[in-house]
Design a protein around this nucleic acid. Structure first.
Length: 500
RNA sequence: GAGCCAUUAGCUCAGAGGUAGAGCACCUGACUUUUAAUCAGGGUGUCGCAGGUUCGAAUCCUGCAUGGCUCACCA
């Protein structure tokens, strides 16, 4: 890190000199616990309605703490603003009230230092609620200058790499992460209230499964085996359904070894839940209710605006078959039985790109992704995914080319994926075998054979509805953030910065 | 992985072949109700890195690094 090897900047040198000056005054620059009576928010709530006269007539003592963000000294007195997690408050310091030593500490104070104060509440001439400080305690000396007070920290790279500076300087950023916390809390409390059991399952797995994605590979020394970071939670939760935990969920990190973008981070947070004796229509109802209730709880409304676009999250959501949507958009009717060659010809004619391993079902999905997906702004349940791209979903009873599966699209992005879980172990084995063929044809993301999971299914899994929700995307939507990096405290960056 | 753009003081940014700039921050001094405090003075720098062109490069060229955006893959 810079400070250690590189020469100190001028400002860093000055701050270290002040550190010594403080010690010479007998002041310890790194203090201990400091009991507070008020946060900034509570301070403004409680005293905001009181007049200068009322405050003067009956002085109220407070103890508060925070990081110094502004300092305005004028000779033998001065002001400063301290910032805590809830906001800022002003303090007023006078040499004749504080005494010479404490006032000297104020004179040596830098933007970024953390102080505890004790004093009484008053209003200044300009009306600002302020603490007249009687006791001024240095709790932590800051040895590096903070970003500029007016423009703040704008450099996107620095904001992500040094998120603590971003949080100090940009109140909106803190708000976004507090909202994220609220959203996750709301998801938990709603599911808990619905009788779902929260569990934790392995993230290190011998066979990665439950999704189509390339895994991260790692190595277990003692067991002398390769292991994978999980790409989904699915297969373990279904084992728990087999085990009799009839309503089960997990909110956890999954890892996919793929590109980084404004919409993708190599590790992201999924909510997966499974409900025995339900099917995908039950899950649809649960999904829209869950999203609406989370929106109500986190942002207070289901009528939100995302990146300038009004979006109404009030249930019920539109339901549309994938094939109908493709027909609306392109005129192509995939309900009509057709050969792979026919489907490929249609793809060529409509400029839809296809890969060598693709069969009719894959091509239908490509049509959907390339021609329909981006236009689904209002919440839409797209159901009836082709069986080839849904190796873990039950086939539709009336038309086995498709599955009882849906994805929820909002703002042109997939927000949820759900289906009636395939509980026929014979069919599941055939699906895995078909996936293995795809793998041989070059689809690296095809599902692997998982004998242990098949064994669980053979014991018998009740009919089950399952759901996965991308929590980061839900936060992006509700927090109106355009990039996944703005809802991850420490998003992945290409490389660590060089030494020095 | 590809294309486009960016990288100059602690931070936010100007400068487009000829002595390295501004605001904030910082340093010195003044100031006991200020609030982007004010006033007087002070520039603190490996112009991302490495080569090249040139009498001379922050500026032009090449490569590299990092980041952003778009695309590809995915959720």
């Amino acid at each position: 890190m810079a400070g250690r090897t590189a020469a100190l900047s001028d400002q860093e040198r000055v701050r270290r000199e002040k550190l010594e000056a403080l010690r010479a005054l007998g002041v310890e620059p790194y203090g201990g616990r400091f009991e507070r009576t008020h946060t900034a928010a509570r301070f403004h709530e409680q005293f905001g309605g009181m007049s200068a006269e009322a405050l003067e007539a009956r002085p109220i003592a407070v103890r508060m703490a925070g990081r110094m963000m502004q300092k305005r000294r004028q000779g033998k007195a001065g002001f400063a603003h301290l910032q805590d997690m809830t906001g800022r408050f002003q303090i007023y310091l006078r040499q004749d009230v504080l005494g010479d030593t404490a006032y000297e500490v104020y004179k040596l104070a830098d933007i970024g230092d953390i102080f505890g104060v004790e004093g009484t509440v008053f209003r200044t001439k300009t009306g600002e609620l302020t603490v007249l400080v009687r006791q001024f305690v240095l709790l932590a000396k800051s040895l590096r200058p903070l970003p500029e007070k007016f423009h703040g920290l704008k450099d996107v790279e620095l904001r992500y790499r040094k998120r603590y500076l971003d949080l100090i300087m940009n109140p909106d950023v803190l708000r976004t992460f507090l909202l994220r916390s609220k959203i996750v809390r709301a998801l938990r409390s709603i599911l808990d209230a619905e009788g779902f059991v929260e569990v934790e399952t392995p993230t290190l797995q011998p066979i990665p499964g439950g999704a189509a994605a390339r895994p991260f590979v790692t190595y277990h020394n003692a067991l002398d085996m390769e292991m994978y970071l999980r790409i989904a939670i699915e297969l373990h939760l279904k084992r728990l359904i087999v085990g009799g935990i009839e309503k089960v969920y997990e909110i956890g990190r999954v890892y996919r070894n793929e590109g980084v973008s404004t919409k993708h981070n190599p590790e992201f947070t999924m909510l997966e839940l499974y409900q025995a004796y339900a099917d995908f229509t039950d899950i649809m109802a649960l999904t829209e209710s869950l999203i609406a209730r989370v929106a109500e709880e986190a942002v207070g409304t289901t009528r939100i605006v995302y990146q300038g676009q009004p979006i109404d999250l009030t249930p019920p959501y539109r339901r549309a078959h994938m094939v109908d949507l493709i027909r609306e958009a392109t005129g192509v009717d995939f309900f009509r039985p057709m050969s792979v060659d026919e489907a490929r010809a249609l793809a060529r004619a409509h400029g839809v790109e296809v890969a060598p391993h693709m069969t009719v079902g894959h091509i239908i999905n490509e049509f959907f992704e390339q021609k329909v997906e981006a236009s689904l702004i209002q919440p839409t349940f797209v159901y009836g995914h082709p069986v080839e791209i849904s190796p873990l979903a039950k086939k539709n009873a009336a038309d086995p080319r498709f599955t009882d599966r849906f994805e929820l699209y909002i703002a042109g992005r997939e927000h949820a994926n759900a289906f009636s879980e395939l509980n026929d172990p014979i069919d599941q084995r055939e699906r895995f075998l078909a996936q293995l063929k795809e793998r041989e044809l070059g689809n690296e993301e095809a599902h692997r054979m998982d004998e242990d999971f098949l064994e669980a299914l053979e014991v018998g899994m009740p009919p089950t509805g399952g759901l996965g929700i991308g929590v980061d995307r839900l936060v992006m939507l509700l927090a109106d953030q355009p990039s996944i990096r703005d809802v991850l405290l420490f998003p992945h960056m290409r490389h660590a910065p060089k030494e020095g």
